[in-house]
Nucleic acid binder design. Structure first.
Length: 274
DNA sequence: CCAATTGTTATTTA
DNA sequence: ATAAATAACAATTG
């Protein structure tokens, strides 16, 4: 499920536990979500530690604990975080739980493409600090985008937008939303875009990130009770999965087809191949 | 049984 | 050697 703003939504859920101590750590030993994690050390160091704060970047969440302890969670395809009452009993896919006095912080992931990481040290770990500069940061310039597209010239633009080293946090639906707004056909080769098209693409990347964070992560507004409930009907998002769905701008039928290995939705009336 | 799924990475191909 | 395409991962749902 989760891309940029959904990850931020799920991070905020756990902020209910900020300032509280971890009384116990419960985890499903040996599950794939712990493939990059020393679960023994994680148990030992997080039990008794206090959750001090958290942040999200791209599709990664970082939780900071007392004693120079850091926890990373990636939600993969099907992961989510929840807050449950103290007497909650874990279910099958609740692979990782931090038990606090007033609540349990639960990480659930049926498909287990997500992961849990742990780091002990003064500074935040490399897997956090090496995340590419955010699309809404000053470092995400039109020149940086143009340069990246030049080096991926033979790949379809849809596939390029999914590359985290330049478009951190962009996932399948955000990529389609950006291309739809920029009126670019997803099969266009990255190297074929004109300067004007790159400028538009750059602008729409920022627009979609800002909007997604506003509607799905409550930035500058209310945090939605449920994911996606505030997403406007004017966005492609609310039409892309429905069979017979129509483009909000042209009212023409949308198309769904695999591009760059992912199911891609676009409006043929608006996004032409040239 | 078949196909689908908002992600990432290892392997294969060009 | 580099970049692009493909397979694989795992579980569930329609």
């Amino acid at each position: 499920m989760p891309e940029l703003a959904e990850v931020e939504f799920f991070r905020k859920r756990w902020s209910a536990g900020h300032g509280a101590k971890v009384l116990a750590v419960r985890l499903h030993e040996g599950k794939k979500v712990f493939r990059d994690c020393d679960t023994g050390e994680l148990r030992r160091r997080l039990a008794g530690a206090k959750l001090l704060g958290s942040a999200s970047a791209a599709k990664q969440m970082l939780f900071r604990f007392s004693g120079e302890n850091w926890l990373g969670i990636h939600l993969g395809m099907s992961g989510e975080t929840r807050v449950e009452p103290p007497d909650y009993v874990a279910t099958k896919h609740d692979h990782f739980i931090l038990v606090q006095k007033e609540r349990q912080l639960v990480f659930n992931d049926p498909r287990m493409f997500g992961g849990v990481r742990f780091h002990h040290g003064k500074a935040a770990p490399a897997w956090w600090t090496k995340i590419a500069p955010a699309i809404l940061s000053p470092a995400f310039t039109m020149e940086a985008v143009a340069d990246f597209l030049r080096r991926r010239a033979r790949a379809p633009i849809k596939a390029v937008l999914l590359m985290q080293e330049r478009f951190p946090g962009i996932g399948n639906w955000m990529a389609d939303e950006i291309l739809w707004r920029a009126a670019l056909h997803p099969k266009r080769l990255a190297g074929s875009l004109t300067t004007a098209e790159v400028r538009t693409l750059h602008r729409e990347c920022r627009f979609v990130c800002r909007g997604a964070l506003k509607y799905n992560a409550g930035v500058g507004g209310p945090l939605p009770a449920r994911l996606n409930e505030l997403m406007p009907a004017s966005w492609l998002f609310n039409h892309r999965w429905e069979d017979g769905g129509r483009c909000p701008r042209t009212n023409q039928l949308l198309v769904r087809e695999e591009v760059g290995g992912r199911t891609t939705c676009w409006s043929p009336a608006r996004q032409r191949l040239r």
